[in-house]
Amino acid sequence: MNNTIRNAHIVTADEVFGGSMSIENGIIASITAASELASSNLQTTAEDWNGDFLLPGLVELHTDNLEKHLMPRPKVSWPTLPAIIAHDAQIAAAGITTVLDAISVGDIDSDSMRNDTLEACTLGLRSAANSGLLRADHFLHMRLELAEENLLEMFAPYLNDDRLKLVSLMDHTPGQRQWTDLTHYRTYVSGKRGWSEDKVESMLDRLLERQQAYAASNRRSIVACCRLLDHPLPLATHDDTTVEHVSEGVDDGVTISEFPTTLAAARAAREQRLGIIMGAPNMVRGGSHSGNVSAAELARADLLDVLSSDYVPASLLHAAFLLQNEGFSLPKAVATVSRNPARMIGLHDRGEIATGLRADFLRVRVVQGIPIVLGVWKSGIKIA
């Protein structure tokens, strides 16, 4: 589809300016500043955006949103295809044109339904994409729970999946990393998982035993498998809390620190040149639901490279605009949800408003300080 847009506030990697953009065959063909348009017939033939922002399509590296549709209540499963379609529609409406669905492999709760939905979920995503049912581009981010006894067997079928773009090493055993404060852990699992106080207490010792039995050996095996792949596969650590956690990740070849929980861990990640991802809900809410370091604090210290919507797709764009309150320019803020995550996983054809790149872009209007998505295009075709 060929199209031209005029009178837009265009956000590129370096600046914001009024102007026009033309699309040819799904590619950004030209970008022209308003000062150069005075004598052009584009003034009358192009679509007038009336000063709305033109942003790159958002790139999401870690969203658990699909799980909410697959399991809308504790112990309640939903049919796979309708769940995927609903998830995809929500993603597209939030302005996300490329998404890594964060699929959990293993769980600290042996009664969880995650293990039962793993195969159906990944097969369903492929089938829906191949059938042309999905609006956004969907890839896989496999989140590996290291204390899972059968982790290697469960992960093996996905090692060479062409959709796999990121692997993260997680350990949600209470008492460390994200759950150093057991008060926050008890509140979380009783609310989200519906655990009673008695179950929480009975699980604590069991979870520690599982960690001691499987986590270290699973981590060594997973890292070794990823190193043997013919194509480079980014590795991330999850919830780094100490400098030692970061150093361990660097030794394993990790390039990304997801959701560091302390300022010290984030500083160590920066010193080791790891990409730092923080949660957009953390930014919007003004703090972590687990009582950890806030995204705003890391932004003020220039220790934030990428935002992830995590469990609220609509938080991604909102959080990016809030970064301006922490000293980020608008181009730098927008890069945390577009260019930076795209480059972090080796996607160089998108994530930026620049000639020659794929025409993934958004029309955004700021209303009462909130960025509102008015339209979403992927490869020049409107998807929301």
Results as ranks from 00 to 15, higher is better:
residue 97 T to G: 03
residue 170 M to T: 02
residue 158 Y to V: 07
residue 45 T to L: 08
residue 314 A to C: 06
residue 187 T to W: 14
residue 331 P to N: 05
residue 264 A to L: 14
residue 140 L to R: 02
residue 96 I to N: 04
residue 11 V to W: 10
residue 52 D to Q: 12
residue 262 T to F: 08
residue 137 D to H: 10
residue 324 Q to I: 09
residue 347 L to Y: 06
residue 39 S to G: 15
residue 94 A to C: 11
residue 72 P to W: 08
residue 69 H to Y: 02
residue 30 S to N: 13
residue 31 I to A: 12
residue 51 G to P: 13
residue 126 R to P: 03
residue 54 L to G: 09
residue 121 C to F: 03
residue 156 A to H: 12
residue 18 G to R: 12
residue 380 G to A: 09
residue 187 T to F: 15
residue 219 R to A: 05
residue 270 R to G: 00
residue 41 N to P: 15
residue 373 V to Q: 07
residue 321 F to I: 14
residue 218 N to Y: 01
residue 333 A to M: 04
residue 30 S to G: 12
residue 146 L to R: 09
residue 6 R to E: 09
residue 197 E to C: 01
residue 340 N to A: 15
residue 91 I to K: 00
residue 373 V to L: 07
residue 182 L to C: 00
residue 212 Q to R: 10
residue 36 E to C: 13
residue 356 G to E: 13
residue 380 G to S: 13
residue 109 D to I: 06
residue 77 S to Q: 14
residue 79 P to T: 14
residue 64 D to N: 02
residue 4 T to F: 04
residue 230 D to H: 15
residue 175 G to W: 06
residue 365 R to A: 04
residue 189 V to A: 10
residue 283 M to P: 02
residue 164 L to N: 03
residue 255 T to F: 11
residue 379 S to F: 01
residue 245 H to N: 12
residue 235 L to P: 06
residue 228 L to N: 11
residue 380 G to M: 05
residue 348 H to E: 12
residue 66 L to K: 01
residue 233 L to A: 04
residue 4 T to I: 15
residue 301 A to L: 11
residue 284 V to Y: 10
residue 72 P to C: 12
residue 368 Q to E: 09
residue 157 P to M: 06
residue 59 V to I: 03
residue 30 S to V: 03
residue 203 M to D: 07
residue 173 T to Y: 06
residue 133 L to G: 00
residue 345 I to F: 09
residue 56 P to D: 05
residue 106 G to S: 03
residue 92 A to H: 10
residue 207 L to C: 06
residue 233 L to D: 09
residue 173 T to K: 13
residue 353 I to R: 00
residue 166 L to N: 07
residue 80 T to E: 01
residue 224 A to R: 08
residue 228 L to Y: 08
residue 154 M to P: 01
residue 14 D to C: 02
residue 298 L to V: 10
residue 343 R to A: 04
residue 317 L to T: 11
residue 231 H to K: 15
residue 92 A to D: 05
residue 291 G to T: 01
residue 194 G to V: 08
residue 154 M to E: 04
residue 77 S to P: 00
residue 305 D to Q: 06
residue 298 L to M: 10
residue 224 A to L: 07
residue 186 R to C: 08
residue 384 A to V: 06
residue 292 N to A: 01
residue 273 R to K: 08
residue 63 T to H: 05
residue 141 H to V: 00
residue 50 N to I: 06
